[in-house]
Design a protein around this nucleic acid. Structure first.
Length: 491
RNA sequence: GGCGGCGUAGCCAAGUGGUAAGGCAGAGGUCUGCAAAACCUUUAUUCAGCGGUUCAAAUCCGCUCGCCGCCUCCA
């Protein structure tokens, strides 16, 4: 089964055929570092994290470049507000970005270049564009002349006439055409600047991605990704710059992830309904957030709300509970093979499911990285395991071998999705005790009541026993009775 | 106004021509003093509506209705 990816440029799923067989070059637009990251960033970078992981899993030698845009108007504005240097702002938010991504379990890209380390490359491209007649200098700025590039707006499937008719573009008198965009901006007093043939200035937005991708992946490379919102103008402008300068195709496959909505509304700063990754992680486990994001296809819109996150957590708990049960069964000493062993119906079914798990997982992921379908396959496996564990009453050697194999398959898939990597029991315990600091009853008091309840239960005083149970439940404490004793969790 | 997307069970969500994955919630069962938790089983003759193409459509085409995104900084 061949890998198929949805290419924004063609509007269709295409067979993925890399430029160099066995290798894949991938560039994803990173953050402009002027503020904390929000869950939209989380969605984007988790999506491309599993694309990166899956490409490697599928056998490609992947070079993954994800940049930091560390010079930009917004960074400068923020620095002015705080009375600090733009570098201090950039460094701070690069650090918080790295922390957030690490908490979400993202793998480090092969390279994470910064725009300010590539000013020379940027200037070189601009020079080429001017020489080829695609750009012009205007009072210290340099603009790209969009009319010189016939392919302009092919990615976003628009046309210049309609865009101009909309007339919501900034008509700067320095531009020849209102749609022209800045490659280089002359610096005003007090602003950071670099030396250039056009005087002191800084790069415009867009050009840094052309420079860095070209530097590390070549003039033509395989995959370029980012959020849907970057299609226009950012990626459109990258294509115009790169292809006009190099005279060859820039990117073969354009991949774009869908948006995050908040309670069914578009997330935006003006509505005030955005959450930073930090805020979300105060309330939800990072793996739960990751699981939630992977439970929908990366191109679909996804609705962030408490109910959906809670459902995601319930689903992930189901999987971890299954893994914990497997680990527990494997921890037991092996019983001699007897008549009621792993050869029953559930055993046959589990063997069958195990046989087909990886092919089905790959089939899902080969279809444009369909992680939602992949998780469906995982859940079917969970059910087969639970049924098997319920059927056998002791773990004999064949059962142990089967469970060991299944456990390995979960780990293999988890490795690609960046899930299921924690110790199951510990993860479940952590989820259970989350929120314990918000209780208005101490753990000691709970334990004392549980002890009392156990006493009265022995005496078969169920009235008092149930009274204690209800009392704790009213305080949000759920008692969990089992043959091994009574534990509790915060409801 | 231009361009693009979406509408699948109570909710979330896969499924791009071959007869509806999965999760949550619900119901039944096992367990339990009774429960809870956990586990098992079960839940859409049907895919917004109406036409059309086809042996066959949720899947392709047309129209209608509803929702959303982009066109301005944005993942």
């Amino acid at each position: 089964m061949a890998l198929r990816v949805y290419n924004t440029l063609s509007g269709e799923k295409e067979i993925f055929e890399p430029l160099v067989p066995g290798k894949a070059g991938m560039y994803v637009c990173g953050v402009t570092v002027y503020d904390h990251c929000h869950i939209g960033h989380a969605r984007a970078y988790i999506s491309f994290d599993i694309i990166y992981r899956y490409l490697k899993y599928a056998g490609y030698d992947v070079t993954y470049v994800r940049n930091y845009t560390d010079i930009d108007d917004k960074i400068i504005r923020r620095a002015n507000q705080e009375g600090s240097d733009y570098r201090a702002i950039a460094d701070r938010y690069i650090r918080t970005f790295d922390e957030d991504m690490a908490r979400l379990g993202l793998e480090k890209p092969t390279l994470e270049p910064k725009a300010t380390d590539h000013i020379a490359g940027i200037i070189a491209i601009i020079g080429t564009l001017i020489a080829k007649g695609h750009a012009y200098e205007s009072d210290g700025d340099v603009y790209y002349a969009v009319e010189t590039f016939p392919e302009y707006l092919r990615l976003s499937k628009r046309n210049l006439e309609d865009m101009l008719a909309g007339a919501r573009v900034d008509v700067g008198e320095k531009k020849r055409n209102p749609m022209d965009f800045a490659l280089w901006k002359g610096s005003k007093p007090g602003e950071p600047w670099w030396e250039s043939p056009w005087g002191h200035g800084r790069p415009g937005w867009h050009i840094e991605c052309s420079a860095m991708s070209m530097r590390f992946l070549g003039q033509t490379f395989d995959i370029h990704g980012g959020g849907k919102d970057l299609i226009f103008p950012h990626h459109e402008n990258e294509i115009a710059q790169s292809e006009a300068a190099n005279g060859c195709q820039f990117v073969r496959y354009w991949l774009h992830n869908g948006f995050v909505n908040i309670n069914s509304e578009k997330m935006s700063k003006s509505l005030g309904n955005f959450f930073t990754i930090r805020e979300v992680l105060e309330r939800f486990d990072p793996e739960t957030l990751r699981f939630f994001i992977l439970s929908a296809h990366y191109r679909s819109p996804i609705d962030f709300c408490d109910q959906n996150l809670n459902e995601a957590q319930a689903g992930l708990e189901r999987i971890y509970a299954c893994l914990a049960a497997i680990d527990e069964a494997l921890g037991k000493s092996v019983a001699p093979t007897g008549p009621s062993d792993s050869s029953g119906q559930a055993g046959q079914d589990l063997r069958d499911k195990a046989e087909h798990l990886i092919p089905r997982f790959r089939e899902a992921m080969d279809d444009d990285f369909n992680s939602a379908q992949a998780l469906g396959v995982v859940f079917e496996m969970v059910r087969a395991v639970n049924r098997f564990l319920a059927e056998i009453d002791q773990v004999d050697a064949p059962a142990q071998a089967l469970l060991t194999r299944v456990r390995g398959l979960f780990a293999e898939i988890g490795g690609v999705l960046g899930l299921f990597g924690r110790a199951p029991r510990a993860w479940l315990d952590a989820i259970k005790s989350a929120g314990a600091d918000r209780m208005d009853i101490s753990p000691e008091e709970i334990e004392r009541l549980i002890a009392e309840r156990n006493e009265v239960r022995k005496a078969r005083d169920f009235r008092r026993s149930d009274e204690i149970r209800d009392l704790l439940l009213a305080k949000g404490i759920q008692l969990l009775d089992s043959p091994q004793g009574t534990t509790w969790k915060v409801k």
